[in-house]
Design a protein around this nucleic acid. Structure first.
Lengths: 133, 133
DNA sequence: TCTAATTCAGATAATTAATATCTTATTTAT
DNA sequence: ATAAATAAGATATTAATTATCTGAATTAGA
């Protein structure tokens, strides 16, 4: 059974070929925007309607299977929902690397200083990756 | 002399009433999206064209007088360019507070661990502000 | 399996957002 | 005050996203 079929079923979404291909492509890319995702999908489903893609993106977002990532100067990106992480964005090759880094002490200090109840953080660090230095 | 006239002049941009009003409204709001900015501007310039607003936003971005901020689940926001800072976004009232916090040691560690040359970071922390707890 | 109910895909059409073009008006340096 | 340069407004155009409708695919149950 395909890796995503159970996930779709758990959210009462039918496992259509289109949906599975959308998830596979997002997963393979790590991060992807609508335009590029559409071009990849057309390779397999030459008749795929853009409306179908947008509809599915919205359905998958609503089910929290994927999430929107806003990266500076880039179009809206989508990724499979995973644990919170920091994005390292290379300004040259536009590759995005996900890293984990414990910021609990930072958060607790910020929370205390500003009387702000932290729920989630979005961190993008822009610069040059090792390949592009 | 208006506070922004010198800035515009330094970038060879004429100080039109529209431009000054755009800067004033962005500054007053702290962060603002195109739609709300347009509605605010219409109060003063009832005939302002949306094309003028978009054109000016792009001109001001190109001159680095304002910058784009991408906040999760919200439309593209604009703010007057200032020192790097962390955004605290309240998920309830959508207010955004700017804070400063020194993350140099975090950055140097991330940079070393990932062989990544850091240029700039974008940090948004979502949660509940003191008014909305 | 076969069938029926449900949901989805594809094809438009319709919105909405953003940009380009053109003419008139405003700004600014002299 | 005037002339050159640039910007504003109006409009058209393009791009992005969503809505609607009908036929097709999926899935649960017999």
């Amino acid at each position: 059974m395909d890796k995503y079929q159970g996930l779709l079923k758990a959210h009462n979404l039918k496992s259509t070929h289109q949906r599975l291909a959308i998830l596979k492509n997002i997963s393979d890319a790590g991060h992807i925007d609508v335009e590029f995702l559409y071009s990849k999908l057309l390779e397999k489903f030459s008749s795929l309607s853009k409306a179908t893609l947008y509809r599915n993106i919205n359905d998958l977002l609503a089910s929290n299977i994927i999430e929107e990532i806003k990266l500076p100067e880039l179009k809206q990106q989508y990724e499979i929902k995973k644990e919170p992480h920091i994005h390292l964005l290379c300004k040259n090759c536009h590759n995005v690397k996900d890293i984990n880094y414990n910021l609990d002490s930072v958060y607790s200090e910020i929370s205390k200083d500003n009387k702000f109840k932290i729920e989630k953080s979005f961190i993008v660090i822009k610069g040059l990756c090792s390949n592009c230095v």
